[in-house]
């Protein structure tokens, strides 16, 4: 067990702290710094507009490799927009304009030569509401694989993806059943399996548990910890407990009178929750607004 470096001595340990400690204690390097060397995703001075409406303002952040980073903030703070800026999903709506850049493994995904379709293959995404395709579990997994030119044995891929998403044991008796026949939590894990099946490097999760019950939520959170061994995960959540439970790093975003969608603070989850450096972060995590 590593030494946990963050407990400030004068404070009593609250339950939230205990949860954080438990979650982070597993594998947190002692010398974490916000300046991550070799980040998987690097956002530089990124701004985004829908028409005249600016939703994200000059955000710079480096998402550490094979870690879970939570993005929190009150609704309307631009956290989902930032997330969708990473795999260029915002562009599905017309009239979107961006400034700055987003580097995925060193390549700017907004460069002229880059095709957003190719970007999305390397960045998986899981949505707020489970959205399996209205077809069999197997077809749900294989759709992404087929369009991306997967060549090898499809059965193996289906099994591997479902195992990685901790769903295999629950569904392997009938892979032909509709994805819609599963429970909400199972559907969301199917969506995770589907995302994993195209072998992304980064997984984006947009409030993946907001439509799920507590038991299903717990399963997804366990799964995320498991997946963090192989993937860089960025999760947007409105649930601070969840951010504290699952993430290694946390970014806090806010909109105020001066600008919309600003990054206020970013750091190791434990630091941010126990010793926020910005008073607005403190106000938010102690529940004084939002």
């Amino acid at each position: 067990m590593l030494k946990v470096p963050f407990i400030s001595s004068q404070e009593e340990e609250s339950t939230v702290d205990a949860v954080i400690r438990e979650a982070v204690a597993t594998e947190l390097p002692t010398d974490v710094s916000v300046e991550m060397p070799n980040p998987a995703v690097e956002v530089n001075n990124f701004s985004l507009w829908y028409g005249d409406f600016q939703a994200v303002t000059e955000v710079s952040i480096k998402f550490p490799r094979k870690k879970i980073t939570a993005v929190i903030g009150p609704s309307g703070c631009g956290k989902s927009t930032l997330l969708r800026g990473i795999n260029r999903m915002n562009e599905l709506i017309g009239g979107v304009r961006t400034q700055g850049n987003v580097l995925l493994e060193g390549t700017n995904v907004y460069a002229d030569a880059v095709d957003p379709v190719e970007v999305r293959r390397r960045v998986g995404m899981v949505f707020q509401k489970p959205n399996p395709f209205p077809r069999s579990i197997r077809d749900n997994i294989l759709f992404g694989a087929r369009v991306n030119g997967y060549q090898a044995n499809e059965d193996e891929l289906v099994e591997a993806a479902l195992r990685s998403a901790a769903l295999w044991d629950e569904v392997n008796h009938d892979l032909k059943q509709s994805g819609l026949a599963l429970s909400g939590g199972q559907q969301q894990r199917l969506c995770i399996a589907r995302a994993i099946a195209v072998s992304p490097e980064v997984l984006l999760m947009d409030e993946p548990c907001s439509a799920l019950d507590p038991v299903a939520t717990l399963k997804i959170e366990d799964l995320m910890r498991e997946l963090a061994k192989d993937y860089t995960i960025i999760i947007v959540t409105h649930n601070m407990q969840q951010a504290a439970r699952v993430s290694d790093f946390t970014a806090f975003m806010l909109s105020d009178d001066t600008a919309r969608g600003k990054l206020i603070e970013f750091g190791p989850t434990t630091d941010l929750f126990t010793n926020p450096s910005d008073e607005r972060t403190e106000a938010y995590i102690t529940g004084r607004f939002g």
Binding site: V114, E118, S199
Partner: peptide, 16 residues
């Protein structure tokens, strides 16, 4: 060998 590795090699994300 993970089944996940049976994809065409990753490029610089320029379009095919």
């Amino acid at each position: 060998v993970s089944p996940f590795s049976h994809y065409p090699p990753r490029n610089d994300m320029s379009s095919r």
